[in-house]
Design a protein around this nucleic acid. Structure first.
Lengths: 358, 358
DNA sequence: CAAGAACGAAAAATCGATTTATCGATTAGA
DNA sequence: TCTAATCGATAAATCGATTTTTCGTTCTTG
């Protein structure tokens, strides 16, 4: 009966100690790799660990430790490929260093973001990777600052005076999109976006505008943005087209906008690239299999995740010095959704074109 | 100086106790809502909590407690909308009950799945929501059983003799797809899938086949599956078409397959639904904005998540009794990618059709 | 050979909570 | 009036590890 009860509950460090005939402190030292233990005793500890199938309880272990081996990750959402793979990467990197990642979605709400952060602070996480809803000046970053938390800000940020930041080089990528579109002869381009406040969205817009005007000073760039959600953006876009505006290309500053643009094109019976060209910031798996394939800016998820974790652990280990602001280069994928203006609906070369067989 | 140090480190229950002039045990009781405390003392505790900004340390709290308030979630991946929103839902539901969710991706590997599970067992999680890579008979479920862990299996499962299971009603949804396709006159249908071993994929196949044959005994159903990954599937599909096989409709049993099918259609210059019809299991946001919109089976993510958590917490709270196997109904969305066979490439009514304005 | 340094391991304190045992004061009952 | 029961609160034990302190041996060294 006692046998059974002992087997029910997981062995603790004391069980290992008594089986090995040493003290719990010695077991702890052996497992921590301290060398001042007699080899004979160390072997007995290893044997007991093996026999009992003992594993350290990370919760109890973190209890005594100054820095708990937990990393928090807060993303605006998990539904998109970008943040989904971001969490996957972060989790893998945390695990590699023996840390546990606790991830939560702020669901695009700054209020929720702060609540989650408070809860992570309760857990006394060693560090936080925060992808803020809006930008680096939100209440979440302020909370982290006020409570002396260590963290890294990613994605919708440019730079901060307290935290390291890592994001895609939006401006450079947008400049390349400008070269692609203006280079193809487009001189009336619509840019759509959400939350112009977000530093990166502004960077994308400015990067695009500057480069486009440099290449062709007479290019016309219309901008439609919405603060709140996608629906107002959809309404504005609908209005814009209904007024008779006919840009030859659309550059969407974010994935949701690309979807909105596509559905509005659908609604009006327009085809890419014959009737209008389209480029989107943020790539997704489906974009290369649809007809036409959608040109897109690919964000370097792995690099961002890896760099963020490197910076974070440097700070966790006590590194001082001014915060750094990293920009990771993007890749711009030219695809069939971009053509030259004026190749009209019946000029061929559009989505009816037969792709080469391998 | 001492002032500052005190402010550096977060207040513990003892700090609250001394500020309130009571013992730590009393503070604990007040915060737990025990009523045997003099109202006067309770008030002083609340005041001290307020003044110090005290919050319970969940790690220390869970230390003493028998059941730790941590739930583990293991998904095959985070990149897709389905598992992404699943994690979001699960996290919200866990939070509602005061639990912390620790999520990890098995990256479609059973070996990794088991390792993650072992690590969650180390944390002594109260329960686990496992979406197995293959099915309920994998090593992960065996590990949970062997170690007396409580958990719920979701998505790629049908039923189990040890754990409650929750999944989409694949068979019923597939039967509806069969009605849709056969009802539209299709008599040669290709079904593609991955990992036929997965119980749900088999259920989808059988649900489809049974209903299709019931409606038209002479319907021809070809099946292409691949065990390993998507690439062999793509190769087989390419072979199949190269041999001159010309089904009039394709039913993909999973999202990856839908993408593969679309890209193969592209490669051959085929259009939906003129040249071939397409229905996919699993919906995604982009499917309704592409041209044509892709008909799809929508899985009830919220219901699955909610039911899984209900069942899990029932077990966590000690409920006994035989495991249940829930099937949540899906919704089948008819879209433009499905048409009638024989309406040939030049018969109109396909992806060139002008959608109604409004 | 005795004092001191070095070494290895055990004992004890600690982390921050919860829970159980204990204790003093008040009230009830005999 | 004295004992027993009740009540509220405190002290102490506990969870499972890590870290610091203490202690007994052995090895140096003057």
């Amino acid at each position: 009966m006692t046998q059974r009860e002992v087997q029910q509950r997981r062995p603790s460090i004391h069980d290992v100690a008594s089986h090995a005939g040493v003290s719990a402190a010695t077991v702890s030292k052996v497992l921590a790799g301290v060398t001042t233990v007699r080899p004979e005793n160390a072997q007995r500890v290893f044997d007991a660990v093996e026999r009992l199938g003992y594993r350290v309880d990370p919760l109890a272990s973190d209890m005594r430790r100054a820095k708990r081996r937990i990393i928090g990750a807060i993303m605006p959402e998990f539904e998109s490929e970008f943040f989904g793979s971001m969490v996957t990467e972060l989790e893998g990197l945390a695990e590699q260093r023996g840390y546990t990642l606790v991830a939560a979605s702020s669901r695009e709400s700054e209020a929720r973001e702060k609540e989650i952060l408070a809860r992570m602070h309760d857990w006394r996480v060693a560090g936080v990777v925060l992808a803020p809803v809006r930008n680096e000046h939100g209440p979440a970053a302020a909370f982290m600052k006020a409570n002396g938390m260590t963290g890294v800000l990613i994605d919708r940020v440019l730079s901060d005076d307290a935290f390291d930041t890592v994001s895609a080089d939006s401006a450079a990528a947008s400049a390349e999109v400008a070269r692609m579109l203006v280079g193809n002869g487009h001189s009336h381009i619509l840019v759509i976006g959400l939350a112009e406040q977000a530093a990166t969205v502004r960077a994308r817009l400015e990067g695009f505008r500057t480069q486009a005007l440099a290449l062709n000073p007479s290019v016309r760039i219309d901008v439609i943005t919405s603060e709140v959600s996608v629906e107002p953006l959809r309404a504005s876009l609908r209005d814009y087209f209904a007024r008779g505006e006919r840009p030859t290309a659309v550059y969407s500053l974010l994935l949701k906008g690309t979807l909105v643009a596509l559905s509005e094109f659908r609604r009006r019976g327009w085809h890419c690239p014959n009737d209008i060209s389209l480029v989107g910031f943020d790539d997704a798996e489906w974009m290369q299999v649809t007809w036409p394939a959608i040109a897109a800016v690919v964000q370097p998820v792995r690099q961002i995740a890896s760099e963020a974790m490197n910076l974070l652990f440097r700070r966790v280990e006590g590194a001082m010095g001014p915060p750094t602001a990293r920009l990771e280069p993007c890749q711009v994928l030219m695809r069939e959704s971009v053509g030259s203006p004026g190749s009209g609906p019946h000029s061929g070369g559009g989505d009816r074109q037969q792709p080469p067989l391998s």
